[in-house]
Amino acid sequence: MPGSARFLVLDGYPAEHRGPLAANGGTLAGDLYERMLQSCLPGCDVDILFPADADCALPSGQALHDYHGICWTGSSLTIHDEADDRVTRQIEFAKAGYEAAVPMFGSCWAAQMAVTAAGGKCAKNPKGREFGLARKIALNSAGQDHPMFRGKKPVFDGFTSHEDEVAELPEGAVLLASNDFSRVQAVDVSHKGGSFWAVQYHPEYDFNEVASLCRWRREALTKQGNFASLEDADQFIGKMQALHENPASSHLRWQLGVDGDVLDDGIRQEEVRNWIEVKILPRLNG
């Protein structure tokens, strides 16, 4: 009888940003991923580490191989900042994950990490920050045939918050989905015997998490042009929070232009369940 699946979750936020996120009502990124993994595979074991912290001891050798899967959360860091050791040590660990052939999955920062660790490039998106909802994410032909998107509509919305994007795909990467804001919304990277499925959006988020991020960053988001004023930001926060508390609210669903793509956990997290089915369960049962 196989034991429980073991996941390593890498919370990419540095300590100085985890505090403000929690203070504004947000859930720590690692905890969000643990919650999602437990929902998709009840009874699994999840270890959360904070690789941006200088004192974080990342597993290597057999300790790394003992995990059935590695998950990467979002991050407030800049992936293309080569002078930031909080970034570079995460890239080095992603390279080790590839070489250990432990399947990897993740959101946002993870898509940029998957590409960078395999030799691709990321840069600041000239369109600014995609925030709140990534609209009309469209699967290309490769995405429609890819097991990550089994059961997913060919065009859907997802929660998002990013200003960096994948600029150049490495060898071994397959582009799966795009929208008008970012060409790379989902990617499958094969590198040195390893596999990394990643999406630029956040299947682990809900409306409370977006409202909390907005509370934390409302001034910066307004300066960046996501909102016309702080009052505009506050109205957005209020609607997001209200819809989280009452997801059946038809007028809020209409005003925000949302449906089951983001309101239904089963639809929103289909990619994660597919990754577990295709990449994790065979390792667990083998």
Rank of each mutant, 00 (worst) to 15 (best):
M1Y: 04
L10K: 00
L10V: 06
Y13F: 10
R18T: 15
L28K: 02
A29Q: 05
D31R: 11
D31N: 05
E34D: 10
M36N: 11
L37I: 10
C40Q: 15
P51R: 02
D53V: 08
H65Q: 13
H68Y: 10
G69Y: 04
C71K: 04
T73M: 00
D81S: 09
A83G: 14
E92M: 12
E92Q: 15
Y98T: 13
E99Y: 00
M104R: 04
M104N: 00
C108L: 08
W109L: 11
A114V: 05
A118F: 07
G120P: 01
A123E: 12
K124R: 12
N125K: 00
G132I: 09
R135N: 06
G143Q: 09
D145A: 15
F149L: 08
F149V: 07
R150T: 15
R150A: 11
F159M: 13
S161L: 12
D164I: 07
D164P: 01
E165S: 12
P170R: 07
A177C: 11
S178I: 06
F181M: 12
A186Y: 05
V189N: 02
G193L: 11
S195L: 14
S195G: 05
Y201R: 07
Y205M: 03
F207G: 00
N208D: 10
S212A: 14
L213F: 07
K223F: 07
K223R: 14
F227R: 04
A233D: 02
I237C: 11
A242M: 13
A242N: 10
S249T: 03
S249H: 14
S250A: 15
L252D: 02
G257H: 11
V262A: 14
R268G: 03
V272P: 01
W275R: 03
I276P: 07
K279D: 03
K279F: 02
P282I: 08
